[in-house]
Design a protein around this nucleic acid. Sequence first.
DNA 1: CGTTAATGACTGACCAGTCAGTCATACTCT
DNA 2: AGAGTATGACTGACTGGTCAGTCATTAACG
Lengths: 223, 223
Amino acid sequence: MARPATKGKAARPVRARAAPALTPEEREARTKGMLDAAMDVFLERGFGAAKLDEVAARAGVAKGTLYLYFASKEALFEELIRSLLASPFQAAGEAMLKQDVPAETMLRGLIAFAKTEILGTRRKDIARLIISEAGRFPDLAAFYHREVVSRGMNAVRAIVERGVARGEFTSDAAARFPQLAVAPLLVAIVWTGIFDRVQKLDTDGFLDAHADLLIRGLKGDKS
Amino acid sequence: MARPATKGKAARPVRARAAPALTPEEREARTKGMLDAAMDVFLERGFGAAKLDEVAARAGVAKGTLYLYFASKEALFEELIRSLLASPFQAAGEAMLKQDVPAETMLRGLIAFAKTEILGTRRKDIARLIISEAGRFPDLAAFYHREVVSRGMNAVRAIVERGVARGEFTSDAAARFPQLAVAPLLVAIVWTGIFDRVQKLDTDGFLDAHADLLIRGLKGDKS
DNA sequence: CGTTAATGACTGACCAGTCAGTCATACTCT
DNA sequence: AGAGTATGACTGACTGGTCAGTCATTAACG
């Protein structure tokens, strides 16, 4: 018990640190490795059917190690979702609002953005996963709504409102229900995940057609 | 261990019910009772988390009885889905095509139909369940596509094509991608199932707005 | 009686979560 | 430098609970 008071001063029982203490960077890197493995498995099987043994195997660690980094399977799942969220919509929308371009251009830009940034990435899989598991994770659904959905809706609403204010659009339907502008994106996400084997959907042409029809509807100078 | 030991095992107080030959009607009625119970449980918990013990309890039978009517949990689930499918869309679409009314009226009628016959019934829950579980039941997804989705798409396509042929519509976007007309319905289904606690969606106003915008877009006499 | 329908205790597999033990490292004292 | 020692990251066999599916048994009928 007697600790040799080195340095004469504060005879503080210094707990000698003597192990491959992980640097924050190392720890983060390992966490990321496990989250990557978890993403593969959860996307492939869904939460319920995903096995932590498999996550561990793919991450190249033992199952016990997972529990040194995450409190439970549920915590791992939630952290995975959180780590993958980003709200590109809002950022893109705000960036566009700063420019002085027609609202039509903004809307088309937003749809093009969704094509590459959501449909073209794993974000679409995350969305599908959340749709599937939201029932069992209400908190996560609320989180996703707050962080992603509501922001996207706000971006669309802002653009459409400006279009109406400037007289470019004659319908405010998409301002009252921004979901209308995003609905086909959801269809594309769900469809490709479920029916693609049966009947392929040309998501690119689909979203182009949506953009055209949407703009026509919003402008529609029909009296 | 103080059990009236009857030969090691003991199947005891059994309150068995009728035993004699079941008429086809009786058999069907019992099947339906179990399917009803199964629907409650599967909708509430999803396939993975649904317990057959609970299904049996709600149906008022023993678990073993389930296996006299269904080969497995999976078979029960599939039969449940099959028993609930109907393709109101196609029938409604065909009925409308027989009348001589404007395509706009048909489309609006179809959307109103979806409101009452899908959003207003448990069919919306079935759709949500299929979206959630399709990954684990590709056959079921294909079946659902064949029996419901493709028929709905055909109905929409037929109506829009007629509208175009008659000069009522100037855009064929919804004929090339009938999903465009149905997308907000899917959003309404998914939204009410996931985000309603966070932010209610006025599905009625939403679909009305969709109908207006869609018609404007299809007619759009903008050059 | 034999047949049919139903039962529910039981089994076996599966899997989330645990924990006693290993090992590589680094610190301290001589 | 080397011996001794502390430490913490990591491991994987194990536990405990859960649940789909089984089957010996019971009851009701003809």
